[in-house]
């Protein structure tokens, strides 16, 4: 990104979701990304079997946020032994919903000409942070006041060597928006909001003290079960 350009949303490195041992020679590694508002599952399919693989298809089990493939898995040519291909599957969030444990767990079935294989993976909840998640200042103040203290969760992020402005810019790249910043007793307090694809708002206070690499994040949400996942995204975004 150039000067003044927003950084892209954080996307974790690919990990192996289906080892070849469990996929009769099919290995799948993958990650999730949000690019220009589109959630994508990015996978590498590798044929470690001795015969050609064809007829790929994918299905998701119902999940917490209704993630579903927005189209078929596009593997247009047969996958030869020792061959790898990169596949990008656009997702939407209008599929069937069922609360998962952990909340961001996704159960996937992939078939080819050999068999059907099942695996679970976890997506960073930041994939679901929408581009219009900047709350009006007045609404933020009223909502912050309105949400009970019981729905506030506090977390710490250690070893974070960023200024509050750098942190704010990084978070904005993942659709976590800073609404106000105040400095009290040498501590920067950033008030931030983010909105999930299903309309859940998360309000945050990020505390950054110059020279102290430990940040404190306080999250307030009417659905406090999302706070742990949102915190994990804060940590991943700020540390990558």
């Amino acid at each position: 990104a150039g000067v003044g350009m927003p950084m892209g949303a954080y996307s974790p490195p690919k990990t192996v979701w289906l080892p070849a041992m469990k996929g009769k020679g099919l290995e799948i590694s993958g990650t999730f990304a949000r690019r220009a508002g589109v959630i994508q599952m990015e996978m590498t399919l590798t044929n470690k079997a001795m015969s050609v693989m064809t007829d790929f298809a994918i299905q998701f089990n119902r999940n917490s946020f209704g993630l579903a493939p927005a189209g078929p898995l596009q593997v247009l040519t047969p996958l030869s032994p020792n061959q790898s291909i990169e596949v990008t599957l656009p997702l939407n969030t209008v599929g069937p919903v069922m609360k998962m444990d952990p909340l961001n767990n996704l159960q996937v079935a992939v078939k080819n000409n050999i068999d059907v294989f099942y695996f679970s993976c976890q997506y960073p909840i930041s994939m679901l942070f929408v581009e219009d998640g900047k709350m009006e200042r007045q609404v933020f103040l009223a909502t912050w006041k309105d949400i009970s203290n019981d729905n506030e969760a506090q977390f710490q992020i250690k070893d974070c060597h960023l200024s509050s402005d750098a942190a704010s810019n990084k978070l904005q790249g993942s659709n976590i928006f800073t609404i106000a910043k105040r400095t009290v007793d040498g501590q920067d307090m950033l008030y931030q909001s983010t909105k999930l694809s299903n309309g859940i708002w998360v309000l945050a206070e990020l505390r950054v003290q110059t020279g102290n690499p430990t940040f404190t994040v306080c999250l307030k949400c009417r659905a406090p079960e999302v706070s742990q996942c949102v915190f994990q995204s804060y940590e991943a975004v700020l540390k990558n």
Binding site: L141, W144, T183, V184, D185, Q187, M189, E205
Partner: peptide, 20 residues
């Protein structure tokens, strides 16, 4: 005036959170 009020409200919020 509204903007001034909101600025002030955020300052009060930050203050109250730091020194409850």
């Amino acid at each position: 005036e509204l903007e001034d009020g909101l600025d002030e409200a955020f300052s009060r919020l930050a203050e109250s959170r730091t020194n409850p």
